[in-house]
Design a protein around this nucleic acid. Sequence first.
RNA 1: GCGCCCGUAGCUCAACUGGACAGAGCACGCGCCUUCUAAGCGCGGGGUUGUGAGUUCGAGUCUCACCGGGCGCGCCA
Length: 564
Amino acid sequence: MQSILQRLEQIVDARLEDAVRRARPGLDGDLTLPPASFAPARDTRFGDYSTPVVMQAAKVARTNPRAVGEEVRAALEEAVTADHELAGAVTSITLAGAGFLNVSMAQAYWQSIVAQVLREGADYGRCPAGNRTISLEFGSANPTGPVVVVQGRSTAAGSTLANMLRFCGTTVTVEWVQNDAGTQTEMLGRSLYARYRQLWEPAYPLPEDGYPGDYLLPVAQALRERDGDRWLRAAEAEWLEPLALFARDQIVAEQQRDMHDFHVDFDVWQSERELHRQGRVEQALETLKAAGHCYERDGALWFHATAFGDDKDRVLVRSDGRPTYYAGDIAYHWEKLRRGNERLIDIWGPDHHGYIQRMKAVVEALGHKGALEVLIAQQVTLKRGEEIVSSSKRQGQILTLREIFEEVGVDAARFFFLSRALDSHLTFDLDLAKQQTQDNPVYYVQYGHARIASVLRKAPAQLLARAAQAMDLTLLTHPAELALIKRLAQLADRTGAAAQAREPHQLTVYARELATEFHHFYTECQILGEDAALSSARLALCLAAKRVLATALSLMGISAPDVM
RNA sequence: GCGCCCGUAGCUCAACUGGACAGAGCACGCGCCUUCUAAGCGCGGGGUUGUGAGUUCGAGUCUCACCGGGCGCGCCA
């Protein structure tokens, strides 16, 4: 169903070109004018919704925005007056400033929003599923240990982005790649062998560049339970592959548990090794070759990346015949495209940004120019008070994501990671996060939800039933009530904007604004009082606010508690 | 040297893709619990948006040059 706002936008779109041409006679040819998009006005003085479209159009046509705007305003007003539904919803249409088109909505319109939220429940603000398909990849790592703290950022952001995109009607496949094909995995096998052997010979040394963390100890135990001592006297050539795979499987299973418990669920856990084994890498390279984008030099196979804007050409197959990591990644992106995804989004760490251009280049070479978007999750600095904590996997001092979220809670950890834009640096102060349980903004939002639940528990059953019928809404006229409703009404827009900009942190901003409006309303307006009709109306508003708060929190993978 | 990201209140960050007077939280000061959860609310001080130019009706946002911080520039992954 079309919203009132969409109908207004449609009318403006329909009249804009006419107005522009009248203001500037003699204008020939096609005019590409931007679509009207009503956004909540910055200041209530300007009305409820505002669009700068007139100024934008006037710029395109190089004409006077005021003249065009006055014409559009008059046309819009005429159309609204002629329509019963619109006339009841809109109270004024003005042109202000350099050419802002502002509209104010009637109280009846805002009151109807409450009824709509109650009617649609969890689906309020959701767009019907369209046919857009996106693959979203993040978190991917070597399967050489548990998920570490810094991955908390990209996985919290990635899962939230996936939730938002789905809420906006996009079909999303969430993917994690196990980089299990390279030398890191071999080293993992050797490290496991040492741990395994230590079960009999405690002094047996770990390999030079091995993984010293404790997490391989239980893996070694599990290996002994399964295979006994059969690898003790075997040659490395015999045990390396099976031990590496054994360790990989155990660790991937652990990573999956970590992610699941952090409220991140993947649809695909792609093994890079499998891509090679299934011949996908070969097929992808054949496709590139057939399209004429490859050549041989110095015994290696190269991709002509400079033809697609990269700094230099890139090696696909080394002179010793082994494919590069890049080749495997090409195969995977090719695979995602072949599955029918019209768009691929990857979230990478900052140390991979030099890799963006070559990946985009190859996606273009495969015939999908512009299909790949790469988001860089900037560095996370870990601190304990003043001290900077190293998070390198190679030093044994691993700080795992699980340690953090078990300590501060998944909700607080997720909110903390989400609350800053992906492309700005994030300092995670562990001391602060641990003691911040009172000051953490996530509690401010959750507290709003819990407060509502508490009021609902206190409310008499008849009043609640009456509220659910949404029959007394015309009594909602207090400024604090209307301000809260206006915030609720933004859910779809705000989520859509955040999803389109790929900025999940915007959701934390909106959630805080929602909570602020609710707390303000709660302070200003007694909900349960003498007047049954008024109480019922305010209870209805509470039900709606609770619903929208819960939706916003659930999009962020954060719980909405009834009691705090 | 070349490339990418960032620079906004004392601190941590926003600012709806170029819009109206740059906003929150923390910290600081002063108020508000005999009624629904004070993990809350209200009021106040705080800014040349790193610097300098440019584009236009209009710039924190776009362009260029500097300054400062981070990262990258392998037949590593």
